[in-house]
Design a protein around this nucleic acid. Structure first.
Lengths: 229, 229, 229, 229
DNA sequence: CATGAATGAGCTTTCATTCAT
DNA sequence: GATGAATGAAAGCTCATTCAT
């Protein structure tokens, strides 16, 4: 037992509340920022709005993020690029067929990214890359490159096992990527605010794409999981 | 012949020319605006640049369009729809297989739209739809709906002839659309300003997509036209 | 006589008032800027104040000067460096002794610069050079270098004619410069806002300095002009 | 000897140390502030920097000085006057010629003040006097007045002994002061951060000035001390 | 006493829009 | 009609100052 617990603990107790706030701030700011960036775009989001939504003042935002661009980068790291390691690990431990893996990956992406607010980031990047070259570079390096590498690995795995016919990896990647990115872009632009009956059902959209993709890649069409007996 | 015809005629000629110019003004402004909006996006395009490129002054721009937003709307109204009738007719007179027709359509789209400046409009619409709901509506009605109908007809033709397996038309459309729209979006955003060796070759991209699409849709893989003896 | 005077003149007449204002603007802004820079320093002068004092809005200032630093440079060019050519010419045409020339130069400097608001610029530069390295560079190149060259020429002239004893030009320059710069700095700082009886009489100050300077430089002390019979 | 003297004594020792530190605080802050004000000027010195350099937090600074301006005033009060008595005594006991004394004084000033950080204070005062009239008053009384008196005594001594020609003391003072003040100002502003080959050599500068000053004041040019056999 | 997280007024600069000519 | 000088509302970012702990 510590002989001077009150001395040891005192500073902590005193600081506790403050620190709890301080620790929470970046997260609060990041989620406020993501929401606003996705809602209104990067350029159209004012730094002060982000601060206000996070419940702090303009100055505080810049206490945690040195510029609006750095804030955006942090949002991307928090919501996308920071997760590649885990996804990669999950892929490594997958033991089913490559067709199943591919289907699995695409649906998992939908579940964890595509259907969440984070998906708006991809759309935002597509919209504003031209005006923020540095952010575009960042995104290409931190998201596009590792993302493509992940897809490439799935395709390679299928080709190695003989499940998939040989395809040029460079362009094969887009067989997988295009449906995902189009859906994201669509839902955050022209597919937004339409009558419910004309809205796209993402799962139907995905299954149609995956089915045809795999029919094209494999010798034998694999069954959808939902059709598994 | 009068020694100074231009002076004698001046009042008329000048007025004539002026009026011609005056009538042409909106068109010149619209095409300057389209180019710039496509190049730089809506927010990043300065009104003065548009005026300058159209050869008029800043004030004149606002004489014809009450605001930058109105100009944007006018640009979109001016530059889309109107070609569907011809494309539809061309499709009717096509006598080859449906696989050939599908390939043909996609490559024709690339040739006539995707690779031209007009493609920038789709990207523009995707980027700015969120900020212009009214424009988005307009675009959906005038462009998306007839465009999708055209694609639907090709798929229906293939299914009717037994070439294509049955697919849900509603979602099958996106098997064709997604690759086209993704390419457009990509090339105007993150795919822009990258090292030439990392740039996407559109034809290789398209052929990879079409091959796999048709392999998925048909019982028998159809040959590429370029491979036809 | 022009056959169409009204056509030729019309545009001019119409524009006249506008243009007169436009032509006057830079000058009005420059003098407002100089006054404020001298009164409050470069950093402490807000761009909007300059505009307001010149009777225009903030935006107008930036229509004529692309930045606050450029405005300052223009002030310097207008009031100091732009006049070296004339001063140099005047020096060339001087036919008296070098001692007279030196006295003349120093008193002329006082008359045309030192006693005017423009003198505040030197003091300002001394005060703020450290925080605006680019301005300091500019000032060294546009003012210090040519100014020193001018002084050097006077000394050289006197040494060539045998009037002045040989001195190291590099440091001799400061025999002339130091008294001028000290007076300027003093009057705009600690010498400011003191009781009239403790204020420095610039002419007495100058004559004391010039007398001793020339006594030191020449074999024979030259008379002051005011003492010339 | 107690095995844990520091623990036993802690309450006292800690308080003692704390109070010593507490008493030292203002001094540490003042010297940090002086260094920074001299290095970067008043406006460009951030309060937090001062605190950091003094090893305390931003808040603590404002505990001791109610504002940045008050800190500045305290810095000036702390760092000037107080040495005049000694200098005066040294002057009284000087037994050489007045020319030698004058040379001696100027070089001693350079050695003890001009070349040290304390010189920055003069420059600081010159730069910021306009914004702190109260400080300017203080400085004039505590520094300028006694300093000038000292110089006046040297001149008077030379005139009394017949070494120096008669000069108006009021203005003669500046024959001595101007070179010193100009050098100080110059070295802390435009003479700073220039290529070493264009930098001013203070000793050469001083000797050039003193030589000419004495040539002007005396009938016979006195030798430099360094030239004395 | 000491801290440092938080504040918000203030700065320079941009640009859609207006309006006298 | 056409012009372009003039406007002024923002926006991003800094930093002296405050105050809960």
């Amino acid at each position: 037992m510590s002989p001077h617990p009150e001395i040891v603990d005192a500073p902590c107790a005193v600081r506790a509340k403050r620190e709890r706030r301080k620790d929470a701030r970046p997260g609060e700011l990041l989620s406020a920022a993501m929401e606003l960036f996705v809602e209104k775009g990067f350029a159209a989001t004012r730094a002060e709005e982000v601060a206000t939504r996070a419940g702090v003042s303009k100055g505080t935002l810049f206490l945690y993020f040195s510029s609006k661009e750095e804030l955006f980068k942090a949002v991307v790291r928090e919501n996308i690029s920071g997760r590649f390691a885990q996804w990669s690990a999950e892929m490594d431990s997958f033991s089913g067929s490559s067709a199943e893996l591919l289907r699995c990956c695409m649906l998992a992406w939908w579940d964890r990214v595509g259907s969440t607010k984070a998906a708006g980031i991809s759309k935002l990047m597509m919209s504003e890359a031209g005006n923020f070259p540095e952010l575009a570079d960042f995104y290409r390096n931190e998201v596009v490159k590792p993302g493509n590498a992940l897809i490439r690995r799935v395709l390679q795995r299928g080709m190695d096992s003989g499940e998939f016919r040989p395809v040029d990896l460079e362009y094969g990647v887009y067989l997988v990527l295009a449906p995902m990115m189009f859906l994201t872009t669509w839902r955050h632009s022209l597919g937004h605010f339409v009558a419910p009956q004309t809205e796209l059902d993402p799962l139907a959209y995905f299954n149609t794409h995956i089915d045809n993709l795999l029919l094209g890649l494999c010798n034998q069409a694999p069954l959808r999981q939902s059709e598994t007996p």
